[in-house]
Design a protein around this nucleic acid. Structure first.
Lengths: 259, 259
DNA sequence: GCCGATTTGTCCGTATGTATC
DNA sequence: CGATACATACGGACAAATCGG
């Protein structure tokens, strides 16, 4: 599968940056040069560069050029750049991911659950609790609510493997986007039980709440992921839009930090 | 200042969506119609729509159209859509933001600080501690480290107002991007002292660590923002890229949640 | 199932504006 | 000032997905 042209260029430049083909702070070849290198139009090069900007790999400065600001992991305590999943992180570090389904049941949305999840009251759901391990240590407890009509044939066996692979590859669903909210909440008894949290140590969890949509525009999933705080990390790159009350949040976000 | 054409279109459509000119789940006018409506090229319309996609306002589905998936605040417990800063949130709710500078000093980067911040050892810094209030309640304690040569003339008075306004409007600096990492950490004595945290209630803080760059490619700021956990919220919209090992992290991120 | 109309996705070439040096 | 580089905008072409007849 040859992918699209701009995506190939994006990957190629990204790979070159990661393999230190350009020094930190160095300017990349100009767009004009890249057009010749890849035998494509300037638009196509610019799409690729745009992705690298949002990934935090490069900066573009009008009149100057495109600067490499990628730091490899060894040089900082943190993994900068694009969002990295625990799974990717696990594989990179040679760790072993695993999933255990601790609850699997059907239920009907009542008023209270409807307000919390956004599903209409009365809709049929599949409710799962799943525990995710890394190297045998339980790190994340997921509360997944799926719209039943969207996930026919879902079983605990599938859920212990990969639900998304099943939805995309077996059911042919197209997942489009996911709205996520990160908060910090008190440890619950369920957290304590499954993740063996010592409340004297940490009495909070990092919680990611997400609403996920498919290509029919249906919000088919509501999930609350409860992460052990000592292993939780979320990365982001914010690009400053050329002034104006843009959706930019100053560092230390949310933005009051510099207000 | 008339802004760019695509940005005006972006704002206009966004405003129409927010004012319920399109029903939830409804398809927007086709790109062709928008071209005629705004008297512009299709590229320009598509740039505006692209921003709305990353904001989580709409989905685009090839062969079908562009669907409105924006939910106004009243209908969900959460504020969905683009990242909203505490300041914006404060103003929207009629709250009063304020900042107090509790520490302002110069220091030289030693080896330990260099490893933590990424500043070269020996560089001169301005170190600030600033407390941010909302309606008189201290919510965020910021530890700001600025490269001294990049912020000449910075005073505690300026820092209690807005450092970014000073850098951009008085010093003419152009801020380009900021790499951020969110974690959860134990409450420190300083947190307890300034934010009056009751450790029996919460013994953790939400921490946002950020590295901010200007248009010279210089990382001029390192900041650690420590947020009261009960007020912390961070929002995000993740777009699924058409298969391939994309920088997409399934909901409940980091991505192991569905692995 | 096929076909054609509609709609979004990708790509191209060109022109002009603006910032840097 | 001129040369270079990125930013914006236009118009056109074809591919790919969706939907209705």
């Amino acid at each position: 599968m040859p992918k699209s042209k701009y995506e190939n260029i994006y990957r190629d430049i990204k790979q070159k940056i990661e393999s230190n083909e350009f020094a930190y702070q160095e300017l990349l070849p100009s767009e004009h040069s890249l057009v010749q290198l890849y035998s494509c139009s300037r638009n196509t090069v610019r799409r690729a560069l745009g992705r690298l900007v949002t990934d935090g790999y490069v900066q573009t400065i009008q009149g100057k050029g495109v600067r490499n600001i990628y730091r490899p992991n060894e040089q900082t305590a943190f993994t900068l750049g694009e969002i990295e999943s625990f799974r990717e992180s696990a594989l990179r570090n040679g760790q072993v991911p695993a999933t255990r389904v601790v609850l699997f049941l059907e239920l009907t949305t009542d008023e209270k659950l409807s307000r919390r999840t956004g599903f209409p009251a009365g809709s049929q759901l599949i409710y799962l609790q799943r525990l995710h391990y890394l190297d045998g240590v339980p790190l994340i407890l997921n509360h997944n609510y799926f719209l039943k009509e969207c996930v026919p044939g879902l079983t605990p066996e599938i859920a212990s493997d990969s639900i998304y692979d099943y939805l995309e590859n077996s059911l042919g669903m197209t997942i489009v986007n996911s709205q996520r909210i990160m908060t910090v909440e008190k440890v619950t008894e369920i957290d304590e039980k499954y993740m063996k949290i010592n409340v004297d140590d940490y009495n909070c969890m990092a919680v990611v709440t997400s609403f996920t949509y498919n290509s029919d525009g249906i919000m088919f999933e509501f999930t609350q992921s409860r992460h052990r705080p000592d292993y939780f990390r979320f990365q982001d790159n914010a690009v400053r839009r050329a002034s104006g009350h843009a959706p930019y949040s100053p560092p230390g976000s949310p933005g009051i930090s510099h207000a």
